[in-house]
Design a protein around this nucleic acid. Sequence first.
RNA 1: GCAGCCGUAGCUCAGUUGGAUAGAGUAUUGGCCUCCGAAGCCAAGGGUCGCGCGUUCGAGUCGCGCCGGCUGCACCA
Length: 614
Amino acid sequence: MEAPGFRFKDCHGAGMERMKLAFTKALAGALPGQEIVLERPRSGEMGDLAFPCFKAAKALGQNPAQLAKDLAAKLAVDGAEVVAAGPYLNLKLQPAVRARVLLEALLGDRPYGSAEPHGETVIVEYSSPNIAKLFTIGHLRSTMIGHAQAQVNKYLGCNVIRLNHLGDWGTQFGTLLAAYKHWAEAENPALEQDFPWAEEIPAKLRSPLYRLFQLYVRFHAAEEEDPALREEARDWFRRLEEGDPEARRLWSWFREISLQTFNRIYERLGVAFDHLEMGEAFYQDRLAPTLKRLEDAGILAEGQNGARIVDLEDVGIATPCLVQKGDGASIYATRDIAAALYRQEAFAFDRCIYVVGADQILHFQQIFAVMNKLDPWFAGRMIHTPFGMVNLPEGKMSTRKGNVIFLEDVLDEAVVRVTAIIDEKNPDLPGKARVAEMLGLGAVVFFNALNDRVKPITFTWDRVIALDGDTGPYVQYAHARILSVLRKAGGDWAERARPTAEPTPAAAVVPYGATLIPSDLAGLEDGPAQALLFELAGLPDALRTMARENMATALARQLLAVAKAFSGFYTNCPILWAENSDAVRDARLALCVATARALRQGLFLMGIQAPEEM
RNA sequence: GCAGCCGUAGCUCAGUUGGAUAGAGUAUUGGCCUCCGAAGCCAAGGGUCGCGCGUUCGAGUCGCGCCGGCUGCACCA
């Protein structure tokens, strides 16, 4: 089920691709007319590539196990063994060949598993916080899922455009204006930071943005008592949309206050956007033309109370898409439609990925249906990547009610916990604060990516900031251990595992220089080394799955598998004093370099940094 | 009520177009630091893959029906 134009050629390392081709050719020769589909075996001990014989056996009227046996006797591939294992025919590279093929791919000129640019344009819309609200743990989901998707698509050769559909327009803005007029203007017109804060508000939260947030919460509480306030809010938004100078002035100011905080968080997370100005407000002067376009297409209809809608019953969606409110003001659907039209014109995208919560599935079904009615060009190009909400054990988080977990609190707590461990295990660590930051954020960000994004998460501190087991720090630990060995190896070994330049948020590639591969790889023929090579071989597939499924789960799990396999290698195969043999030592060090690079690159795609020491 | 998503080990979860003996982590129990980092490694126990029927050579995976949970169902986003 790949989207149009979804083509990641040669995602494998070059050498492995060659072996795959040779195996496929041999099979095709022996089984004319049969489709040859290869799989990756469960474990490296079974082999590198597997051909399930079920289908071919059925077509030939044979027993699959017998067919596998017959084929094994008949086929030969250079550098590999063809073995039957029950109903499977496996290609098992000779250990030395396996090592060479993979090291060439891992240490070659092209980033491992990447693809050459191929001209496909992908828009990723993510993060998209609302003005005047604080970043909660929930915002981390859209932000980091989207960031990782942008990264992997870029790594796989797409032209990526990162958009932040800032929630800087809409009725909730009316509530903010109304609330400000009601209370703040008299009490604290400048939203000063030195406003007399309530005792229970922690000092670090005392900011102009937090004042806005308080106004928002206060308004919704007051609204319960006095429904007239709701009308007032709508009216303010209508005035804003009509260009009322006072409304515009406050809008601009509130937006600025919010962006200052948002940018601080993005910088901390290492996230960057190509267009931060293209929020909802950006499309305000395109709303009227958008409605006109809907009208010209003959799909605009009258709804209740003078509202205007697009009926979608003919495409199986019972709820019509509301595009203009009864009072004439716009609504978010209008702005999403206008945005899609604008993006078509400005970027001619092949795919537009919306990283937005699962509670908006219907909304995007509606938008996509409207776009398809407007122009069939949109069919298949619009992709909603929903993710499950973050809930508290006692129920849903609610910004309005004020029972939320703030993202910065989670990140800070993670760093505190990591710092405590460093103080215990490695108190003299240079750059302690910087490393703690990488590890703390690594734990939280990795956890966010580990599981199927569509499933809701019940927030508990211990789960979200777990530091043992299948976690970011586990992968980071493997990386740090490798660098430690490489430093001890002397020469330029450690240098080979260091990027030639600091990777930037907008670049998907961690730049590494080309490095020589030892001519003698006999030191990598042991089981644990081979097992590590097998897991490294799984990374290109994981990247491809990550791009296809729009989530980093596959990559996160493959990185864990690589880190775990490295532990096995490290425990069982001496590296620095390997059998008193320079050749064995060099081969194992080369594998260490390859592993460190792969881990660091993989983590970077997820938005996680890997320290040299921890 | 209608629609969508989710039910896999005590807990949290993976499971690659349907395919090899259903796997990790955590927790529990027991081992491993005179040697490259113990944030680690090894081992053990732990399963009716919610229930039933069907399709198939083959179902955790596909279809239908139940049961349970979550989400959504026009003037918030």
